[in-house]
Structures are given as C-alpha cells and as structure tokens.
Design a protein around this nucleic acid. Structure first.
Lengths: 113, 113
DNA sequence: GGAATACTTCACCACATGGAAAACAATCAG
DNA sequence: CTGATTGTTTTCCATGTGGTGAAGTATTCC
C-alpha cells in the first residue's frame, strides 16, 4: 500500500489518454481479449498494444496469455489508489475551510464583547 | 459542467507530475504567489512557470497579477470533476459484481431444486 | 533616477510519446 | 501440412514535454 509519487505519476499518465480511459471503462464491465479491446479503435494493433503496455506498467491492468489469446483484467485497487489522492486533497481543503469558519467565529465573538 | 474527454485528458496529464501535484497540494492550504510556490523546487523559474501554465490550461488553477506579483488559486471544482470519473468507474464495476451475485444466486437456487 | 524584485519570453536541447508499416512468431482449424 | 488468426517485434517519424540559460519587461523601493 505504498501509493508513492512514482505510482501516481504512471497512473495519472496512463489515464491522460482517451483510448486508455476507454479501455479501463470497458474492462470495468469485465475482462476482455486484446482484439476485443482494440476493435472500437481505428489505430493499428501495434499502436494499441502500446496503450495496453502503458496500462500494465501503471498496474491498472494485468493480462495472461492462453494459447494465442491475451486476456486483460482491470485492477480496481490501483484505480482506488488514485481516487484516494483526490480524497486526501479534499480533506486538506476541507480542513482549511474549517479554519476559516473558526476564524469567522472568533471575529464574531470579538465583535460581541 | 461538460466534463468531456479533452477536459479529463488535460486534468490527468497535469496531475501526472510530482511537481504539479505538489503545487496543487500546497494550494489546497490556500492561495500563494508564484515565487512562494516555486521556492521548494530546484528548477529555474521558466521551467516552473511552464508547470503553472499546464495547471492553468487544465483549469485546475487560476491566477491574477497584481502589480508585479501573480497569485495562484486552486480550482477545487475541477479536481472534483476528475474525482467524479473514478466514481463513475466504481459504479460500473459495482454493477457488474451485483450481476455476478445474481448469477450465483440463480445457480444456488438451481442446485437446490 | 537607479536598483532590486518578480515574473516573462526566447532560443535551444534531450528524451518520451503516439502513431504507421512491415515482417515475425505462435497457435488453432480443416 | 496449409492457411487463417492473434498477437509481437522492429524500425521509423512527427510531435510534445521538461529542463536549461540569457535577455526582456514591469513594478516597487530608496
């Protein structure tokens, strides 16, 4: 559960492409083979395989080859790790707002006395 | 509230860099000037300003210049937009698990009879 | 006015990324 | 064994990204 900087780098980098996000989305419905995944896209297989490689390098997808067919599976944990970063940020600025509220309360109290 | 592909592209692209995530994190504590933001990093100002430009292009940060000082502010809504994508994915695979559960129930029921 | 501050722009470089094309496996079907 | 499928590798190209250093532009301070 390291979830370090390098991890986030590669995960966000992987998701910064519509093709790869579409693959993640498709795999959310269940595992699929490379050709099934490549079908909706115009690009050639070599180009598409690079996208898969990026997703695997980021740990978002794993795949096994049975016979001549490679089947890809979504690693939901990794997606949750990235989602966790947003949650961390949210908590940070939430804390700031609470500080502001506290400050306002202090000012109000001072006004009264 | 479009939150289209291009938007997500630039947001994730912007977050796929430790320098820029650190800036977002810092701005989560409150607005800051360019030099305040740049201080923790070794790189020269030109390089740092490019990072700021990327964040602004993605809409994650806005800035105004008063006198010779530019002050940057975090746009929390944009971060929420990206976080929303993860939520969408989560709902998709949650739905899939429910289908699997239903399938298992069907099989169980069939076994019984 | 002159100097220091706070960016800003410009020119340039090394390397990564996204894509095409072509040739190369490795399997399965008849 | 002969193909037809299904990836995989290799080579190549254009573009984008992250960094540098040097010079330029406003402001503000003394």
């Amino acid at each position: 559960m390291e979830n370090n900087q390098t991890d986030l780098d590669s995960i966000f980098q992987a998701l910064a492409d519509p093709t790869r996000r579409a693959v993640v989305q498709r795999l959310g419905e269940g595992s699929a083979t490379v050709s099934e995944l490549a079908a909706p896209f115009q690009m050639g297989l070599p180009a598409f395989l690079k996208h898969i490689a990026v997703l695997e390098a980021a740990g978002l997808v794993t795949s096994i080859k049975v016979g001549r067919v490679r089947t890809c599976t979504l690693e939901e944990d990794k997606l949750e790790a990235a989602a966790g970063w947003f949650q961390d940020q949210r908590e940070q600025w939430k804390a700031r707002y609470e500080q502001l509220d506290a400050l306002l309360d202090t000012l109000k109290a001072r006004k009264k006395t």
